[in-house]
């Protein structure tokens, strides 16, 4: 009776990708924001060589997080404004599949922004931030942030304050994740051996799994009616 999970998931991702390819709204805005944010940080912090080494991971993550919030608001607002969500709820499809589809779409867009940001900061700050571990931590951090972001954005787009409420509701919940991600990134950039920061990667992984489970379970409730 129900459409299979993976088919629903891929249809939603395909729909989001198609809309994005035709309008170039989301990734374009996020990238532009990321570029501006990196520039503003470099002026505001007046980073010299030593300060850069310490501050760059914070700059990177703050930029990714705020860019991602922009994207999440757009992505969930779109579903709401065009009555898409109602249509999906009427269809005989499982709720976790909707979550998975929206989440993976958001993850994809944020990952694109994050991955483009790495060479950008490498050039602008003259520090090589690209490495294998860096990509792993970037992936884990963005994964957790998008999981919670998708759930909370689904709630906040249904409130009066809408866009304004997402960062307020999301940032405190995502904080443990950010702490672990920033710590791990700083360690990687300063060439600290894995044994010394490996716990942060483990903590990140555990938080990711816990948030994934909680958010998939809770999603069913935030989209009913």
């Amino acid at each position: 009776m129900n459409t299979p999970f993976t088919r629903v998931m891929f249809s939603i991702i395909r729909k989001d990708l198609l809309a994005e390819l035709r309008s170039r709204e989301l990734v374009g805005t996020m990238l532009m924001f990321a570029l501006l944010s990196v520039l503003i940080f470099s002026f505001a912090l007046e980073l010299d060589r030593v300060a850069r080494q310490e501050a760059i991971s914070g700059v990177l993550w703050v930029t990714i997080i705020f860019g991602s919030i922009l994207g999440l608001n757009r992505s969930m607002g779109m579903e709401r404004d065009n009555g898409n969500m109602d249509a999906m709820l009427l269809a005989p499809i499982s709720r976790p599949a909707i979550f998975a589809g929206k989440f993976l779409g958001n993850l994809l867009f944020t990952l694109v922004v994050g991955l483009l940001l790495l060479p950008l900061t490498t050039i602008l700050y003259n520090i090589s931030v690209i490495s294998g571990w860096m990509l792993v931590i970037l992936g884990l951090g963005i994964f957790g942030f998008c999981v919670t972001g998708t759930l909370i954005a689904t709630m906040t787009v249904q409130t009066r304050a809408r866009e304004a409420l997402l960062p307020i509701a999301l940032l405190p919940v995502a904080l443990p994740l950010l702490l672990a991600a920033v710590k791990a990134t700083t360690a990687i950039l300063n060439n600290v051996p894995f044994a010394d920061w490996g716990t942060w990667a483990q903590i990140l992984l555990v938080i990711d799994v816990v948030y994934l489970v909680v958010c998939v379970l809770a999603f069913e409730y935030v989209i009913e009616d």
């Binding site: 759930l151 909370i152 709630m155 809770a218």
Partner: peptide, 10 residues
């Protein structure tokens, strides 16, 4: 509904 979920997450 939303308050319950957020209260659990928080």
């Amino acid at each position: 509904l939303f308050a319950s979920i957020y209260g659990i997450l928080a």
